[in-house]
Structure formats: structure tokens, C-alpha cells
Amino acid sequence: MLVVENLHVSYGHIQALSGVSITVPQGSIVSIIGSNGAGKTTLLNTISGLVKQHQGGIKFKGQELGWVPHSIVQQGIVQVPEGRKIFAGLTVEENLLAGGYILRDPKHLRSNVNKMMELYPILGSRKHQQAGTLSGGEQQMLAVCRGLMSEPELILLDEPSLGLAPIIVKSIFDLIGQIRQQGITVLLVEQNAKKALALSDYAYVLENGHVTMEGKGRDLLCDPAVKRAYLGEKE
């Protein structure tokens, strides 16, 4: 569904990605793990069109994706950015409405808002509250729901479990599973390698802008090098 080919990205002199190629098949969960500064966010931002100075190809459903962020959203790719980035001064409901900005039909928009509020009743009971006053976990749920509002075909999740308590991390990963069951393809970036790999169909390890390893999620989970570097286990 999404094919990234030999992608090079640099910020001035800093080379953030050097020749990254990944493939995300329709209906799958693909994850990307890697340490801080490996270039994971850069990869997602380049796909979303926020980072423009790149070389290499990005194809979505066989077509060149282009580099205009709002048109990429219209083509069906939505990113839930790192650090949640909810609109803190807008209400919870307005955040959801903003997520559905590209939907033309007001009734459709309204019914999607209601769906999200059914999925997470807390969003319904806090709908007039400023989103910045929600707890971290609630904000992350809101961020993911906001991303789902426009009914994407592919959702890019950048470290959704960052800084959350284990029980909330679990519910985030449950939600990712549910998203896939709805037929939405997921590209997941995670530091929580264990959980991410267990859930993924396929995974890539990114280091200093290079893909150093790739394979089925379960295979990587058992790989000694991955265990050492990302799962904190001794052999």
C-alpha cells in the first residue's frame, strides 16, 4: 500500500535518513523501532509532507504521494504526531472536529464525533473542557481518536505509548489492534519495542538513518541483537 524507496533526507548538513526503504502492505501493522535520533519521526514527517527536502520515492497505492500535507491527508494518510500535539486551548470536541476537517458532510462529521465519544466515553463527558487539561493518557487517546476522525486508510502513529503508565500503554496497544481490525493499515513508530514487535506483522530497525534489520515482528523479538539493543535483555 505504501512503498518508500531509497529515501534520503537531510536537515542542512545533518543527514537524518540515508537510503531508507520500507513497504507497508494493506491491512497490516508495520512497526519501526530505533533509538533516539535514529530518524523515525523524520521518516513519518517526510511521508506526511512536513519535511520537504528529500530524495527518493514515496508511493501510495501505486501513485506518487506528493509533498503537500493537506493533500496527503485527503489521499488517506493521517499521522498522529509524537508528543500528542493536541490543540491545548481548544475543547476536546473541537479537537475531534479539527481531526475531521476534510469531511465535507456535517452529518458525517457529527456522527464520527459521536463514534469517538462512544469509543472513549471520557471524551464525551469532557467534551467542553479544554483539551490541555486532560491527563497525558487521555490526551493520547484524544490524539489517536482525532487522527481516526477523517477515516484514514493508513495511520502513522509516532510513539503513542511515550510517557504513559503501563496500564494505559496496554489500552493504547489494544486500540491499535482494534484499528487494524477496522481495516485501517498501521505504521507504528515505537521505543517500546517488545509490545510493538509482538503486535506487528513486520518490523524495521532504524539506526542512524539506516535500516539495519527487518523481518517478521515475532522473528525480530527473538533475534539476539534486537534483544540486546532494544529489549534490555542479557543473553
Binding site: 512536513l50 473541537e94 472536529l97 479539527a98
Partner: peptide, 24 residues
């Protein structure tokens, strides 16, 4: 209105507003 919401969203965070499909 929708455009009003977009104006307010963009006032908070341009990049994230772009990620919602808003055209800066």
C-alpha cells in the same frame, strides 16, 4: 464555522493543523 476552527487550530500549531488536512 469550519474555517474559524481551522484559524484557531493553526494559531496553536501549524504543523499539527496541516496533519489534520488544513491548508495553511
Amino acid at each position: 464555522t469550519k474555517i474559524g476552527l481551522a484559524i484557531r487550530a493553526l494559531s496553536f500549531d501549524v504543523n499539527t493543523a496541516n496533519l489534520m488536512g488544513m491548508d495553511s
